[in-house]
Design a protein around this nucleic acid. Sequence first.
DNA 1: CTGGCTTTGTACCGGCGATGAATAAAACAC
DNA 2: GTGTTTTATTCATCGCCGGTACAAAGCCAG
Lengths: 417, 417
Amino acid sequence: MGGVTQTRTTRLERGRSALGPALELVHTGRAPTRAVLTNQLGVTRATAGAVAAELQALGLITVDPRPGGAGGAQGRPSHRLAVDPEGPVVLAAQVHADGFRAALVGLGGRIVATAPGCQDVPADPGHVLAAVVEAGAGLLRASGRRCLGAGLAVPSAVAEPEGTALNPLHVAWPAGAPVRDIFRERVREAGILRHPEGGDEAPPGAAVLAGNDINLAALAEHRHGAGRGSRDLLCVATGHRGVGGALVLDGRLHTGSSGLALEVGHVAVNPEGRPCHCGNRGCLDVETDPLAFVTAAGREPGPEVSLLQQSRDLLRTEYADPAVRDAAHLLVDRLGLGLAGLVNILNPDRIVLGGLHQELLDADPERLRAAVAERSLWGRSGSVPILPSTLGHNSLVGAAELAWQPVLDDPLAALGG
Amino acid sequence: MGGVTQTRTTRLERGRSALGPALELVHTGRAPTRAVLTNQLGVTRATAGAVAAELQALGLITVDPRPGGAGGAQGRPSHRLAVDPEGPVVLAAQVHADGFRAALVGLGGRIVATAPGCQDVPADPGHVLAAVVEAGAGLLRASGRRCLGAGLAVPSAVAEPEGTALNPLHVAWPAGAPVRDIFRERVREAGILRHPEGGDEAPPGAAVLAGNDINLAALAEHRHGAGRGSRDLLCVATGHRGVGGALVLDGRLHTGSSGLALEVGHVAVNPEGRPCHCGNRGCLDVETDPLAFVTAAGREPGPEVSLLQQSRDLLRTEYADPAVRDAAHLLVDRLGLGLAGLVNILNPDRIVLGGLHQELLDADPERLRAAVAERSLWGRSGSVPILPSTLGHNSLVGAAELAWQPVLDDPLAALGG
DNA sequence: CTGGCTTTGTACCGGCGATGAATAAAACAC
DNA sequence: GTGTTTTATTCATCGCCGGTACAAAGCCAG
């Protein structure tokens, strides 16, 4: 009678102390020393030092007392903080039109090991994901690393919170396949997340998640690539067919209320354009993808899985051909119109382009920037930096980011068990 | 010698304890009792009780021991938590095509006093803002309340962080007028923020800010109106001319990297439409505003400042006229197309419409919902709730929210001085 | 080479807010 | 009335963080 302690509160589990933010700063390379960590966190040196010591004790970062490079500094040299290259990893997996890929990725976005596994993708997601996870398990056995989570990138919008692939592109999966749960089940079966020493089950905080490949590429570019430091990053990219987009706000992926945001393919850019399966005509999706480019250049389109490569080759080796150049100009203008519309709606502080769009930007940066500036309402928008993506395998690194997130949010909970 | 204390850290000033979140919960009506406050904050009852006591001591909320209404409850009845109706206020000001308005607004979005001040808006923003502030100062003298900040709503995009009005609509201001600084200067001159007892200067934390009227209306709808509880709220509304939009993410206004986001007026909805000043044709801006409606209904448009009222009258009293109904259908379909495009990009969990769009929704809710569902890619998006706004003077309330924000973030700092 | 100067890393204490348990209070059910 | 349930309040305690002092490690001037 009396003390019923407390009705269970819906605890927010806000990450204990500044451990998480500190790890994120080191993870993204924004805190090379304890001193800047102190400034970035807004805490005292004492606290920053304690936090760094704890992260080191957890085996996540290293502290190198060697004076760090920039010799011109006054005062006592800083010790170098870095991600521990021998630390734990996560499993990153990607399924795309050409096959699949698995990798182990450490903190800092460093790819530790990869297994290509290029094969045709069968119609049953269960088989592919089993194969991917098996490849990852092999990598893990070979490396002896501890694995803290797993992330999967798929060429489809992923509905949240269900984790289902709504419109798998060019992999013959059924729409609505529960890829997240299938992936999770395969990972559980493989026992990847089991703590190596203790024979325990998977740690409770470990994440096994799935996301759209372009969303994840954007996340990777934000953390480790051309989007570093952006607070409001828009990414637009093509695969072989279609156009995808992603938005990273304040360091977090903006997936909308149900994971379906940034379906940017259906912004209208050409009133007389080709009909699109969405019902309109002249959508970004059908006007600026590799098929549109190859066609506009008057070439015979090859097989679908090679359209991106064919477009690349055209741009890089036959740009002197007027037909190719005109086609590039046409696509650049239409892409510029689409991006301008997105700028008017989202007002990003940076735009990063991937796939064919990246190639088009490289081919004629000024034309694209001018097109965006001209069609976006504000003169200021003309100064939105438009950059090519800088990471290879960025979807893979992004899938790893997904799996790292719980660790970055609360390292103690994710490791301590 | 020796201890140099600490190099000045860029302190994050994260709000002391859970005081701010607690006040926000009471402010938005989501915490009617200490018990739900406990749950919402995820703290213990002890903490929630202490926090409530402190807010009461600060004169911001009241605690009413009277058992609160819902008689069916088990156990000891809760005390009612409410915003203190005698508490401090902020000055809210709005300038629009028809004139200006000033009001005192308390916590909870309650308008305490208003001064209409309907007159023509002179071309010099300094004069209007002086008049608005003078009206507000009169209200303050009459009420004897303490004023904690001031917010201004203007019919223009406001660039951040400059606080300049980039495209004032239908008030003859120069583009780029520094309205925020002018407003701030007038408020300072009027001595509104001076603490009544102490003859001190304005408290350092007090906010004097300006924002776009539709953005602020969206903020008000989110906190106190049809957008309550939404995590991803899209608002679209018309004035007399043109279309504006706003997005509220996780309770914060998303203004983009430089305050220019959600310029939704230039989404294309009619390839053969009227030319728009943006260079395209058939933009939402010129296809779904009151002028477009009056014209489509075959009526002679009246003076610009009465177009919205003229449209309202047509819809409400002459909807039986086939010309009016057809015009409404046409605009609904185009609005639906535009909203569908925004849904594909933003994936909101709710849409709130204002101005003429609200009237169009009221006139034929099912047609608009169907149009959005049909044109947005995902079946799920068809279930996006589309609601009319529920607040009168919502821009004014939103301007007040702007001024309340520092108090909600850290009540102690904002009041204690 | 020696003694300031500057910046970085560490030890210690104290404050403050939150937790957790126990107790009191106020209704409803029987 | 008595027991049950839910809510409010008091109190001891814990842990994170801030502030201070001090030690360490390189430049620079003489």
